[in-house]
């Protein structure tokens, strides 16, 4: 195993373990961990099975196989960022509803007798 292979195996394995540990301690919700786990597993597999990487890059027509690794990494980062934008939008919507309900409820409480 070359040094660079060893490095990328170690890094993706460390990422995988770290994500699992965060989920186990409930610091990261399962739904948000799925993408991270998939991403780190794909990188791990492609670092170990280099002939897969080479074959795959030949199929898609990439001359320099490691750049496929970059491509996969960048795609994964984009995916996770979109996922975050969606999650933030959902939170924004929920937060707005909550603030509105709170303002309405405060007024009812102040009135004593609602409606």
């Amino acid at each position: 195993m070359s040094r660079v292979t060893l490095l990328s195996v170690c890094m993706s394995a460390a990422l995988l373990v770290y994500i699992l540990e965060m989920v186990r301690r409930r610091r990261l919700r399962e739904e948000y961990s799925i993408l991270w786990l998939c991403g780190s597993m794909v990188i791990l597999v492609l670092s170990v099975k280099q002939d897969w990487l080479i074959r795959l890059s030949r199929i898609v027509g990439i001359a320099y196989p490691p750049s496929l690794l970059f491509l996969v990494g960048i795609l994964f980062i984009m995916l996770i960022l979109i996922h975050f934008s969606i999650a933030i939008s959902k939170l924004h919507q929920m937060n707005k509803r909550m603030a509105q309900e709170l303002a309405l409820l405060k007024e009812e409480v102040k009135e004593g007798d609602p409606k």
């Binding site: 707005k96 603030a99 303002a103 405060k106 007024e107």
Partner: peptide, 18 residues
């Protein structure tokens, strides 16, 4: 006036919707 106090700034549309 009857006043509804939003706990944070929602923007004019969010306030109107309240």
């Amino acid at each position: 006036a009857t006043v509804l106090d939003l706990p944070c700034n929602l923007g004019i549309g969010g306030a109107a919707q309240t």
